[in-house]
Amino acid sequence: MEGKSVGTTIPSAQGPVTVGDVLRTTRTYTAAEVREFRALSGYPDSPDPRYLPTLLVVAPLTKLGGDINYLSGRMVWSVSRPVAVGETITAELEITRLEPTGNGTRIAFDARVLSSAEVVVSGESKGVVLLG
């Protein structure tokens, strides 16, 4: 695979990871959390939200990024449908490239968010993992 550096690993909250590994986390957002996110965003309160703001749908992907101290340079997402409040979603980041540099490690991912087996978000991201 182009750009792949065999044997390079980076630390994560789930132990050392390398190209081909998948980081995974699951979350279910409540209406209260959606309202809190709207408040954080400066939006007026919506007492009975139907859907998660898209940024919350992809938020578990950013949690996985945080677990490896990832600083994003680019993110591309495609979202197939709205995700309802209370729907359980699982985010997956599959590492497709690791390349050590002077200041850290360049990294690329394929990104997915699933609801049960249905992919609701697919995309990719690349950036750098900062040295600790």
Partner: peptide, 29 residues
């Protein structure tokens, strides 16, 4: 402290509206 990318984006008008389904985003940080 560095703001999370989602925090940087969170105040964007329209993106968090309940009646707006964002179908795609392509972002450069």
């Amino acid at each position: 402290q560095v703001a999370q990318g989602l925090l940087t984006l969170s105040g964007t008008p329209l993106l968090a509206e309940d009646g707006v389904h964002v179908t795609g985003l392509d972002l450069r940080f």
